[in-house]
Design a protein around this nucleic acid. Structure first.
Lengths: 396, 396
DNA sequence: CTACTTTTTCCACTCACAGGACAAAGACGG
DNA sequence: CCGTCTTTGTCCTGTGAGTGGAAAAAGTAG
């Protein structure tokens, strides 16, 4: 098919598109219940949307007691590409316009290989998804990168863990290659959008989404909108001091949260423990794999290894301490914990909760859920699809 | 005069009122340059505003080369009352509709005496201002209280330093007494609004406003709007842990920022130092006054007293450390330092700056001014007037 | 006094939208 | 099977907001 290029012509159409995206097929009458428009006006706007091809008829709706109505839905042939570039792997997914994941693949890849190599990989993965019949082309793509982004231009700025990406015109380059509109954002922000769209944060206006992976970041949502800060580096909590005069960090300071707890720090601590003979479990895993990662620590903890549990608990305490500060400051309605270390599960969560509930004031914590993300590795790509759909479903 | 009760009838009128508030008298043509409306539409809306009495004619404008235009301005008889209830004193000011302070008085008062006693004082001060001819009555009042507020209802919730205020219907009670609309907010938020309206933050959309007085709080402005959090306690940074296992705090924890640096903590430390004979300067002041406050420390520091300087420097370091974390998290475009301890001046500022610039990443600090508030004790009352004017100049 | 600007008013025209009337299509009871 | 009721979809007209051009009003500059 020819790719869609139409955009909503006004705010009403944008509203309707978003309702159809979030609510699935709907009759005109049901839409009318949700927007404050006269039936005539609604009919006009729906007709225009049908003309653009963004929306198509979709059979009869269930009867509500009288004349049955015809459903309409977003064009089922629309396809969005969601790309989540992590520090050590790339996730790519295809969704329809309702942001349902149709296919999702993951490939290990070091982001430090630079934008050219990474994009080659991303394009190959996109081609693979296309070849498997899930899409003939893409109507838009959202890209998440593990570092701060100058959002309007879609360009990474001074990303600490992505040497070689600074100033690279990601948005422009990928838009060219994919032949469709592209939006770029920090991967943590996308995770927050993902959990907001389809995960635990569906009903919350103000929340924090802490992602603990190779590094540590935090998505900030204010009034339902992602807050990115003055230079796009908001939520960069990995380098908040967690331990006075603590471990040296790559950033040049000491005691950064990231230096004490993150995928990388955890692997290092586990290796140390294994080598010092503190944990038979970890040592045997080291023997087998030749290396240790956060996954090994999670497995060891699941097997009841005391050292692994202690590592997780201590890391959780550190993280919880920082989050407690953020909770006092930001007073969110929800805190979501996600990222690669979600596998550490409830040991981690319990440690974080303990710190936050102990250190922050009751008014801020009284009704504050602290939960694990619901979507796991899909949060990023769903958030990416959501990002581009928000863009495309806004008036031009 | 009869008090104004009119409100703008639509968003255009609201926009015009705010332009006149912030820009002073303006001709229709000048207003036309700032709003995106046709001349005819503009004329209609201005006429309606003139009819309501909110706006009046104000002579001829300066020539711009052609026909001279007639200025219009907000009714100069409109009066707002700004009230800033601090922990240890009350500020009350009268402004006109352009938020220019016409009179400002301050009275020491302990907020712990409870809402009834405090309001008696506030009403007496308002009466005094009225009696001095500055106002015949008030068209609206903004109230700042030193604790979290459930904003829509204007009711303090669980305020730690204001026993007896929890759940007291401040908005309703004062509205009754003053006979005009009232809005209530946290005093720190009002300080932020004040600096935004008439101080250092005029051009910044996202900034933090740290107020160090008896306690420590932080106003958060996102996209030009004050962010209050889910339960109204956002910005409550006084109980963020600044020193692991540090001093015990009234909140039950240890090492809270407020326990280590605030007006109260500074007075306590100064007293200790004086009694231990570490500072002749402080000891002599203790002799004279029978007590020591932050003001004495400021004076001693200004006189070059090493102990006082050290106290300030250490407090600034602690505060700077916490602010550094907030800067990493929030990535503001500006940090304003204000409150009672502003008298500590550049010694304090230098200590804070050092910590922030050292601990936060360059991307966040690169272009980040950290400055003292410009308005001093007037910030709160101006912010209060701004709060109620924002409310009254919005469509009903 | 003349030519040119700027401001203000006036007016006709467009357009979005509401809301009623009516037709279409089904549910349901008899 | 038929008539009545309910819901849905379409048509149409009235209304009010708003635009933009023309012209009048009131200046400035030379």
């Amino acid at each position: 098919m020819r790719r869609m290029t139409a955009r909503p012509g006004n705010a009403h159409q944008a509203r309707l598109l978003k309702l159809l995206r979030d609510g699935g097929p709907n009759s005109r009458a049901q839409l009318g219940d949700q927007v404050d428009l006269s039936r005539s006006k609604l009919a006009v706007e729906v007709d225009r949307l049908l003309e653009t091809g963004l929306v198509v008829a979709d059979g009869l709706a269930a009867s509500r007691g009288g004349r049955r109505s015809h459903n309409i839905r977003l064009n089922p042939e629309l396809r969005f590409l969601g790309v989540d570039i992590g520090a050590t792997s790339v996730d790519v997914a295809v969704t329809n316009a309702e942001l349902e994941t149709l296919g999702h693949i993951n490939h290990p890849m070091d982001v430090r290989e630079g934008p050219v190599a990474v994009f080659e990989q991303v394009l190959a993965m996109a081609a693979k998804l296309r070849a498997s019949g899930l899409a003939e082309g893409f109507d838009g793509a959202g890209i998440g990168v593990p570092g701060p982004v100058r959002f309007p231009e879609g360009i990474p700025v001074a990303p600490p863990i992505m040497p070689g990406w600074d100033g690279f015109p990601v948005r422009e380059a990928l838009s060219q290659e994919l032949g469709c509109p592209v939006m770029v954002d920090n991967d943590v922000n996308l995770m927050a959008m993902g959990e907001q769209h389809a995960g635990v944060a569906r009903t919350v206006a103000d929340f924090l989404c802490v992602k603990i992976g190779t590094g540590i970041g935090c998505g900030i949502v204010v009034g339902g909108e992602v807050y990115r800060g003055t230079t796009g580096s908001a939520g960069d909590i990995g380098h908040i001091q967690a331990v006075p005069d603590g471990r040296p960090c790559a950033c040049g300071n000491r005691g950064c949260l990231e230096a004490h707890f993150s995928g990388a720090a955890l692997a290092r601590d586990a290796l140390e423990a294994a080598q010092q003979g503190l944990s038979a479990e970890l040592a045997s895993r080291l023997e087998t794999n030749g290396d240790l990662t956060a996954v090994d620590v999670a497995a060891a903890a699941a097997a009841g290894d005391a050292t692994a549990l202690e590592l997780i608990r201590e890391g959780g305490n550190r993280t919880g301490q920082v989050i407690a500060g953020l909770v006092s400051f930001f007073n969110p309605g929800l805190v979501v914990i996600g990222g690669g270390v979600t596998g550490l599960g409830h040991t981690l969560l319990a440690a974080i909760r303990t710190q936050v509930y102990r250190q922050s004031l009751p008014l801020a914590t009284g009704n504050l859920p602290i939960v694990l993300g619901e979507l796991g590795p899909a949060a990023g790509v769903i958030g990416a699809a959501r990002l581009i759909s928000d863009h495309l479903f806004s008036p031009a």
